[in-house]
Design a protein around this nucleic acid. Structure first.
Lengths: 360, 360
DNA sequence: AGCAAAATTTGAATCGATCCAACAAAGGTG
DNA sequence: CACCTTTGTTGGATCGATTCAAATTTTGCT
């Protein structure tokens, strides 16, 4: 009955209106894009014709081709789209990106795809002026795919050491050092590491050689930072279990099972993300292991939720929103150069870390 | 030095490589879009030419014009872009939308703008196949603007009673009735309502006549539901303070100040959103007023966070993700008809509601 | 070799606008 | 009245691809 598109003959084009109003298409175009330069009488006539014929206004598809600029920036990830709304880190980052986009009136296009093939297609056909890449997983492939578009793009997290690509990230080594040092100073000597992916699609305990050959240098840098700081306190880093997860609940829990199955469980956990750290708090608490009474935990990222969980999480805070803001601006006012920025991190001490238990 | 766009002469077009490879542009196009129909030798030659000239692949801007479909759905709001990542309700909704989009490989374009003028422009120039409108505030105007695009669109929240527009929402009257009934059955007789906006840009206590003329029927329906249920328990609804907020922290706190300045403060609060309800819990707790010991609170929405706050919030749960999923599908497989769907809600009893204090 | 069928390739038309150089009309001036 | 401005309007060129009917080449078969 009621139908929002009256009939469905082919849509009305600007040229149709021009003909109906008896003016050239050039003038008709001006009526919409620069009304002030067309005589009032003509303007009204064209507008009336447009109204009468149910013209939807100049089609952005047509305009786009001529204008060249979309006025939107694409944010891409290999995770499903819901990642942008679920993951605390992604959300904080998106908030920063949003802010920069709002300021210039640019839009945001979310690009993602589970399988490789769709991802490629989505990247290739995204209508954007540039990309911000969430290189959590599948980083190298995502970068490669994006590079082919020959549009400006920025990788988040410095996931790759390829310095022909622009990237913004934090000093992972320094951050990790801070975290480890904090725990060591509290007196801890037995550690375990919950690590982000070193390479795609693997989880489990990681050997030193795997660490050295890690595809994701961000992950590697954090290990390096942890170990560096701990060695300085005389801790034998070779004995520290490093469990690679996919930064989700399931693999983190698996890691905890493995780590705490040991005869000499750690008194401190270094988690490479707040997400894992929060899962750990929950897991330990559920098992009656006190945090930080029995086990201390330090996260990484500084997501807003970390301040809210119980006990509040001690973590290495990245300036997440600032990274997002800078990334967006880098695309928005792209100047053709490759830029790599490293921002500082900060140790935020909260309730999840304390001295090791006396009995240990 | 290093530059990601080698030189910056005009970009290479498909026609350029066709010429270079000595084939027609039709064939060159086929090499990229339907490689299987072109002879291998030719295909390789064209690909080689493309490679040699640094061709970025068929430009989606050009393809789009011909294809007509963007394969992306726009989500619009009058709030700033960060709303999508901050607000719990919006996030849950976006998760549902994401799911439906992921399933079909469609993208999501976020559209927003603070000021009216930019909003209009952004809606007019968004490259999308249809819109989902978050009609929290500025609903009517947003609908009007979108209608002009003559693209399929769905309004969320049934904010308008104009039934020429497709919309998905919940039965607000029924939900509100459930909330009020629950509190009345616990024995409460003194209530206050924290209301969503009735019209744009106003906050404060609301008179019955303002309720009747509310621009946002969703808000009005909830009041109606509350009052209907309460009358049945003999409560004089005329005496209930209804405070209109902008669903943010500041105006909600202002509302609470007003409400609790009364000589006979309420023992139960009906909040039209979980967000307000959670602000209320915090506000009351901070003042030493026990929830639910002194004051009970029932929210509305059923956002995930409501289960996590302390005390956990009793609320009217909407199937938020399902609404999002349906909205997205409505756009994705648009059939030209107007659809209005009303989904059911559910009372979820948690810790924030209990019997009124004996002393009251 | 001869011929029909199948496989490729061509090039003009199209998608829907914007831009701009050239032209036309109206107004002003000596 | 001729000439110069100013103000508006025109229509062709362009943005970068895809599509499809027609033309051409190959292949298969006798």
């Amino acid at each position: 009955m009621a139908s929002s598109t009256e009939g469905n003959a082919r849509p009305i084009r600007l040229a149709d209106i021009a003909r109906a109003a008896g003016v050239s298409h050039g003038t008709a175009s001006n009526v919409f894009s620069r009304p002030e330069i067309v005589r009032e009488e003509v303007r009204e006539r064209v507008k009336a014709a447009a109204e009468a014929m149910g013209y939807a206004g100049p089609d952005p598809k047509g305009r786009l081709l001529r204008a060249g600029k979309v006025n939107a920036i694409g944010v891409a990830t290999t995770e499903p789209l819901s990642y942008f709304f679920d993951d605390p880190f992604a959300r904080a980052m998106m908030a920063g990106i949003s802010e920069a986009c709002d300021a210039t009136g640019a839009g945001i296009a979310l690009v993602s795809a589970g399988n490789e093939e769709k991802l490629a297609w989505n990247i290739q056909s995204a209508l954007v002026d540039g990309f911000i890449l969430f290189c959590i997983e599948g980083g190298p492939r995502l970068v490669e795919l994006t590079r082919e578009r020959k549009l400006p793009f920025v990788a988040l997290e410095l996931g790759s050491e390829d310095d022909t690509v622009s990237a913004i990230g934090v000093d992972n080594v320094a951050g990790a050092r801070l975290a480890a040092q904090h725990l060591a100073e509290l007196g801890h000597r037995r550690f375990a590491v919950l690590a982000l992916p070193f390479a795609d699609d693997s989880t489990g305990l990681v050997t030193p050689s795997q660490v050295r050959t890690a595809a994701y240098t961000g992950t590697r840098d954090r290990i390096v930072g942890y170990f560096e700081a701990l060695s300085r306190f005389g801790v034998d880093t070779a004995g520290i279990p490093v469990y690679e997860t996919e930064n989700d609940e399931a693999s983190t829990r698996a890691g905890l099972e493995t780590i705490f199955a040991s005869a000499e469980p750690p008194t401190a956990i270094l988690a490479m993300s707040d997400r894992m750290a929060m899962v750990a708090i929950e897991w330990l608490t559920a098992r009656g292991i006190a945090v930080p009474g029995d086990v201390s935990i330090v996260g990484f990222d500084g997501v807003p939720e970390a301040a809210l969980c119980d006990p509040a999480l001690t973590t290495i805070a990245q300036p997440i929103a600032e990274i997002g803001r800078r990334a967006a601006r880098m695309i928005l006012d792209f100047d053709g150069t490759v830029r790599r920025e490293t921002l500082g991190v900060e140790l935020v001490v909260r309730a999840s870390s304390g001295p090791p238990p006396k009995t240990a």
